[in-house]
Design a binder for these strands. Structure first.
Lengths: 116, 116
DNA sequence: AACACTTGCTACTAAATCAGTAGCAAAGTA
DNA sequence: TACTTTGCTACTGATTTAGTAGCAAGTGTT
């Protein structure tokens, strides 16, 4: 598995645009989930694993390596934590929480039409 | 492949929380990319495929079905377009573009340390 | 009508990624 | 010393993605 370094080709994109590298990174299983769960505060490996609903350690470790190398998370005494950049990133995506609730309510309403 | 409907279990999460369904959805290859590229305006199937750097038609179709069923994109005369909810979603994530540029610049600077 | 194009999409195979489980080395604790 | 906890690696099987070929339906042209 290669880490999507901005400026280089990434999975599915040859442009090297930073946004494509980011979308590649965030488009990996649990990448957003790890960031999301770390926003609650630092966590040890096993605690982070619990927050992520028992994600397998191999996958968690892979995600950690990627996010660490890309300076989104970092290691501190208490375990892993979001870096300043990671915090900024989370700030951007945090409104997704309330958006997703509206969305869920809407889909609920629209359900009868989903059959088509 | 099952579509991550909020309120039900999704890949990696049994909680049924809307945010987890959303993170699952967005954590699939090209889901964010499709939304990103549709934000430029409606596109036909083949044009969308081009905007997504020749994503394979089978995968594009899969993503389209998911996003359509979840009311994030919809069909219009010109092809596919973001729904109002999709536009709202894009509004939230659009700052990722500038964030990713800062991020890229930062990683560039930090590169000598990446070797460790 | 016959032909050539375009469009939306399905089918299929191979490669990559993810899930799930077992377990080990190192560090801490009793 | 023996027992736990922690961080992590290894391995296997299942799922997802990439890449390519191509077809049916619609459109335009001659």
């Amino acid at each position: 598995m290669s880490i999507p370094i901005p400026g280089q080709q990434v999975r599915g994109s040859k442009s090297g645009k930073p946004i494509m590298a980011l979308l590649d990174l965030l488009g990996r299983t649990w990448a957003l989930g790890v960031i999301w769960n770390l926003s609650q505060g630092p966590a040890t490996f096993r605690e982070l694993q619990q927050r992520c609903e028992q994600i397998s350690p191999s996958l968690l470790n892979t995600r950690i390596k990627e996010l660490k190398q890309l300076s989104i998370i970092e290691v501190v005494d208490e375990g892993y934590t979001l870096s300043q950049q990671g915090v900024d990133l989370f700030t951007i995506i945090s409104p997704l929480s309330s958006w997703s609730k509206d969305w869920a309510a809407n889909i609920e309403t629209a359900k009868p039409q989903l059959e088509n």
